[in-house]
Structure formats: C-alpha cells, structure tokens
C-alpha cells in the first residue's frame, strides 16, 4: 500500500473510531450469556461493572495501537527467531500485548476455551468492513491477524500465571512459615519459586 493510502485508511479508522469500538465491544460481550451481556453493556461505573468497563477500555487501547501499527510489523516478527527482531518491532508487539492484557487477563479465568477467549479479535475484520465499506487492500486484516497472535501470547501468559499460582500458593503460605521456624527442611522457598523468576 502506498503511504498516502495508509494515511487515508488510518484517518478513516480514526474518524469512525466510536462506531467501530461500539460494535467491537458488543461483539466481545456477546460471547457471554445474554443476561450477562445486557448488564455488561449497561453500567458505565468502572467499579460496579468491572468486566464491561475494562473490556471497553482495553479494546479502545488496542484499537489505538492498531492505528499506530507500522507496515514493518508483520508475521515474521512472530515466526522468526528472536535475534532477527529489531527493538522497534519488539516495542510494537509489546504495546499491543499490553493493551490487550486487561481483557485477556479476565477471559483467561472465565472458563473460555483458548479460541473463545481470543475470538473477539477476529470480529474486528467484519466490523471495519461493514463500517468503512470496501477496504483498499488486505493490510488492515493483516494488522488484525497480528493482534490475534498477540492475544494468544497474552492468553498463554495468563494461564501460565494461574498454573504457577496454583502450584506455589499452598507452599508459600504454610510451608514457608514452617521453614522459617525450622520445622521442615525440604526445598527452600527460592527453589520452589525458581521458575516464576525466569
């Protein structure tokens, strides 16, 4: 795509941001049962309705990052070995992953399968097409694919986080107190928690 076409597409996305975000948010919360989705879409108070509001904010931040994505970011950033990535590309991926974190972190503990947890990302393709009409080329869909890959990454990190908490919680709570008191002499806490620090 020519640079001016890219600028044009980004401008279109910017201009239609509210409309796109509303549809994207609706698509994301429609993954919940109907009665739940209705309530998630209702209260704007971020403390009375944490899932609804965090989801909305996380989608908005991600959308902003999609607009900011450069053409240099491509699938290879994910498929190539780490050594081939430039710092700049790293930053781009991290930015997207961080903006997805709040929504994915929630979905990772809500009994969604991995695919259900990240499926909302792909909905963005159809939504943007319906709002903007025909897109100049495939570059937007391509960006959404990159976001989906970032979402998978983040989902896995959250699940690993959960498994680690599950494995070490009881040991940290009771075992370490006993250990300090010299009532048990097995693995040290550092040894048990070694994997969390890597």
């Amino acid at each position: 795509m020519m640079p001016n076409q890219l600028i044009d597409l980004n401008r279109q996305l910017e201009l239609n941001k509210e409309k796109i975000l509303t549809l994207w948010f609706e698509a994301a919360i429609s993954s919940y049962p109907e009665d739940t989705a209705r309530l998630l879409g209702k209260s704007k108070n971020r403390f009375d309705n944490p899932v609804g509001n965090i989801t909305r904010q996380s989608l908005e931040d991600t959308f902003d990052n999609i607009i900011r994505m450069s053409l240099a970011e491509n699938y290879k950033d994910y498929t190539n070995s780490k050594h081939s990535q430039t710092n700049k590309e790293h930053v781009g991926q991290n930015r997207v992953e961080n903006s997805l974190d709040p929504v994915i972190r929630i979905r990772a503990v809500q009994n969604f399968s991995a695919s259900q947890a990240v499926a909302f990302v792909f909905e963005l393709k159809a939504i943007v097409k319906s709002v903007l009409g025909k897109l100049p080329d495939e570059s937007f869909n391509y960006r959404v694919d990159l976001v989906a890959l970032a979402a998978f990454n983040r989902f896995m990190k959250c699940r690993e986080n959960i498994f680690l908490l599950k494995a070490t919680e009881a040991k940290r709570r009771v075992h370490s107190a006993f250990e300090r008191a010299g009532l048990v002499t097995e693995l040290t806490e550092d040894e048990l928690l070694g994997s969390s620090k890597s």
């Binding site: 971020r46 403390f47 944490p50 899932v51 503990v109 009994n111 959960i162 599950k166 919680e169």
Partner: peptide, 21 residues
C-alpha cells in the same frame, strides 16, 4: 482452595480492580 483458583481470581476481580485503581 487451590483447585478452584479460576473461580477465586474471577470472583476477586471487582476487589482487585478497585485496588488497581
């Protein structure tokens, strides 16, 4: 318990959300 940790993390979200704020 440990085995219901997803339930606990989900149920604790509204509290954690306010702490995060």
């Amino acid at each position: 318990a440990g085995e219901n940790i997803e339930l606990r993390m989900a149920g604790g979200l509204p509290r954690a959300n306010a702490v995060k704020y």
